[in-house]
Nucleic acid binder design. Structure first.
Lengths: 350, 350
DNA sequence: AATGAATGTGCACGCGCGTGCAAGCAATGC
DNA sequence: GCATTGCTTGCACGCGCGTGCACATTCATT
């Protein structure tokens, strides 16, 4: 009565040295119940007698049993896996978003699978294919701009796609966006109010949607008040080094600007350092610099960069909610927009 | 002869709005072959006639089929999933390592599942449990210090554990370590050669193995040459803010140190900023500061921090190799050690 | 023409799990 | 005493896949 079926008549594949995970059948054998009972014990809401439940739990504990979520996902058709596509994890802003996202997904009972996008657009397809192979409940694209055909084929093959600050608005996937143009207008307004007239904008040669919106928004707003800003784009990615190079270019010639709007904090810090250390400019007396993202470094004493904060927590929360809701097949794709808030520090004259 | 079995008599579950992924059976029906043929087409090295192979590929393409790696993993007993346990993704060093790691894992045909460790040690168990549930081929622990009992129970339940700079050497899992003590000795030597005699070390109250080794190594080395360094530990985590606070404490009193060794770059930058901006000290004339990790920010113009570079690429490569090799059941756990290299910049007098 | 080898294909099983269905059992109502 | 109800439990099936085995087919060889 105590413990029958002591020796597990489980299977013949017992001696697998590597990854010898315990299966429910072995637990069942040890607990002297059927495998169904084990399964029910670990299924919330299933009907199991308190006695058997306890016996199963004891046996599971002793054997070190863990439900196989892969198999469970197979029958339930939901893996619990959410893929997150990123290219530059190292960048402070991306790692911030990624961190918050994984944490929240985890709290929601999901798990984040991070897919790195190495270089060109081409492997966007490979990465998304990977996501499909693991039957991701949703795929969140933080970096890279999958071509429209790729996006369509993903959607057709049953994948759930959530683009964050990616692509143009007319395609099919759910989208989360930032009011970049509005922020850029606010930036211009701040510069003008501070008395700056010689404006410049620093961006990169290869622009993503976000970056393009920011620079274009700034340029438009400037023109609307009769100012034609200088535009400097350096390098492919928004790095500190490219920011410094852009700054060097800006400050070398004659018409030195008195205010620079950077599409990105890291770039802005590069510009800032070039101004101070390479050209001996005083910020904000000689020069105002504004960034975007509000990365932690922007608050450091050496910089105190005025910038726009992305509501990362809200964005992550929205994404998780989208994932949890699921997607109704016929329904229109969701499109959410968030507003960055200006964080005043001391890199802009006011 | 062209295409028989046109309408897929697949299953009754066709109308699943959400995540309607295509299965091999439907592809088989469309291509007019058996499901085995489809399976073999996507299995490297399996025997398929060129003709059927093409037909299958066409059908798969049309239907948007992707092999279900969950199911494949179920029968092959290898999921391709590698879990990476991290707590502070936001920190530059962690995100650097994580980025390289995910990329290399991906190149090796694996996929990284990131598990965030929220706060206390307690949920280390929950997180590792999660890894087991997804039948991770290996679990790489970058943050958090799972208690020995947790580690043992993980190993017993068949999990493959790789600890990076974690735990003490006597437990069972594979380990990758850094020669922190050696680096600390080199740091001291550099200070002494630079003529510094009033030394200090900045660390945190809650130390991980790495941090403890660094501070202890420095202290020992200092005592070996007859110097008793001041020790300041601030806060729980190694953050910029805690570094700044530690710096404030160091520079406020009488016996101001002329050299500070920080267990961490981010902390060092906080100390540096406190020294320069809050106390008007000149670096390196009045004060030498050394950090650890060589994060990108350390190379920025405002800091130019002398620090130790972790061979992140090598570490990641070693981890991937460990994962690929598998673990022979009886064999001793692997233990690898790497050596950080001193990167000279201009925050230390020489 | 007959035989052997070689190649390709389908069948059926198992991987670990959830669950509908029916059978078992105890408790309750008449 | 019997019928009814409610709760457990085991059986059996399917989720999507890889693969051993047997069979069909083709081709070269004797």
């Amino acid at each position: 009565m105590t413990d029958l079926g002591r020796d597990a008549p489980a299977s013949r594949t017992v001696d697998r040295g590597a990854s010898a995970y315990v299966s429910a059948r072995e637990v069942a054998a040890r607990a002297g119940v059927s495998r169904s009972a084990v399964s029910r014990t670990f299924t919330p809401g299933a009907s199991v007698a308190e006695d058997t439940r306890r016996r199963v739990l004891v046996a599971a504990e002793e054997l070190g049993y863990h439900v196989n979520k892969l198999a469970r996902g197979l029958s339930l058709q939901q893996s619990g896996i959410v893929c997150v596509v990123v290219s530059d994890i190292m960048s402070p802003q991306m790692s911030r978003l990624l961190g918050i996202l994984t944490r929240r997904l985890q709290q929601a009972g999901r798990v984040a699978m991070v897919l790195s996008l190495s270089g060109p657009d081409d492997d966007a397809r490979l990465v998304l294919q990977r996501a499909a192979q693991y039957r991701a409940e949703a795929t969140i694209v933080l970096s890279g701009t999958p071509s429209r055909s790729i996006v369509r084929s993903c959607l057709e093959s049953g994948q759930r796609l959530i683009l964050i600050s990616r692509d143009d608005p007319e395609t099919g996937p759910d989208r989360i966006r930032l009011d970049n143009a509005g922020a850029a207008r606010a930036a211009l307004l701040a510069f003008v109010r501070g008395g700056c007239r010689h404006l410049a904008v620093v961006t990169t040669e290869k622009q993503t949607l976000s970056l393009a919106e920011r620079s274009a928004g700034f340029i438009e707003a400037a023109r609307a008040v009769g100012i034609e800003p200088r535009i400097v784009s350096r390098g492919v990615s928004t790095s500190y080094e490219n920011g410094r190079l852009a700054g060097t270019e800006l400050f070398t010639g004659e018409r030195r600007p008195d205010a620079v709007f950077c599409v990105n904090d890291v770039t802005a810090l590069g510009v800032l350092d070039a101004a101070r250390h390479d050209f001996g400019l005083r910020v904000p007396e000689d020069l105002s610099v504004m960034g975007f993202d509000n990365i932690p470094e922007a608050d450091w004493l050496s910089y105190r960069l005025t910038t726009f904060d992305q509501p990362v927590e809200d964005i992550a929360a929205a994404v998780v909610q989208l994932v949890e809701e699921g997607r109704d097949p016929g329904g229109d794709p969701v499109s959410l927009s968030f507003t960055p808030t200006l964080v005043w520090r001391s890199s802009v004259r006011c």
